[in-house]
């Protein structure tokens, strides 16, 4: 009997009402963690794709096997440019991911606050066509 009541209670209080209460807690605990993991995986994948470490290790190895002096110089210059470019790209992407995490944290409460602000201080009630 206890378990039957439990099952019904779970349906009503956990799944329906409870989830509304749990939602903010989840958003800043499990949800945030999942988001950060997703971002870290994304940036890691990009890091492997750019292979900056590989380029640094091969910094003095001429590109396209051009072992003459001219080839070596051009190669070093190109590697320098590519490493800088890719590093910059990686940093920018990292920033974008960081921005996403910040958005995750800020956007829902901000939206809620702004909505409340609009409702309380604005002309919300008067403007809603059906409530006019």
């Amino acid at each position: 009997m206890m378990q039957r009541t439990g099952a019904l209670a779970r349906l009503v209080f956990v799944d329906l009402i409870g989830s509304v209460v749990w939602f903010p807690v989840w958003w800043y605990t499990t949800g945030l963690k999942n988001m950060i993991v997703w971002c870290v995986e994304g940036i890691n994948y990009r890091r492997r794709q750019y292979a900056i470490g590989l380029w640094v290790r091969n910094f003095f190895v001429p590109m396209y096997a051009q072992y003459d002096w001219g080839g070596r110089l051009v190669s070093i210059w190109m590697r320098f440019v590519v490493i800088i470019g890719r590093s910059l790209g990686l940093v920018l992407e990292g920033l974008a991911y960081a921005f996403l995490v910040v958005c995750w944290c800020v956007v829902p409460p901000l939206a809620l606050v702004l909505a409340l602000q609009n409702i309380i201080y604005g002309t919300f009630v008067q403007q809603v066509p059906t409530l006019r």
Partner: peptide, 25 residues
């Protein structure tokens, strides 16, 4: 911020979207 009703609806939509992500997960 002035309190347009449809902007408020948009804000509520954003909160609802966050809630939707939570429910889906």
């Amino acid at each position: 911020t002035i309190g347009h009703w449809f902007v408020t609806v948009f804000y509520l939509g954003v909160v609802l979207a966050a809630f939707f992500i939570f429910r889906l997960s």
